[in-house]
Amino acid sequence: MNLEPYLLMTLSEKGLFERAEKERITDCMECGSCSYTCPANRPLLDYIRMGKATVIKMARERVSKQ
């Protein structure tokens, strides 16, 4: 998929959800390979899940407003 977990995690952590959407956070299928392999044991997938849920919620609100 060529996503960048380090970037998606940081964007979710800082609350920059619009940028996270542009970086295609919703393409993440939560396989967990990033968290499995991270040598520094960062909670990558945890933050990506949180960011993904927020981005999807924002997208739904956009649709319902139309």
Binding site: G32, Y36, C38, P39, P43, L45, D46, Y47
Partner: peptide, 23 residues
């Protein structure tokens, strides 16, 4: 935030690589 998300769902397995081993 960090503490809030530490009770974490999958992946429960973790690879053998650690910062210490790399260094």
């Amino acid at each position: 935030m960090g503490n809030l998300l530490n009770v974490s769902p999958s992946p429960h397995a973790h690879g053998k690589e650690t910062t210490q081993k790399l260094m």
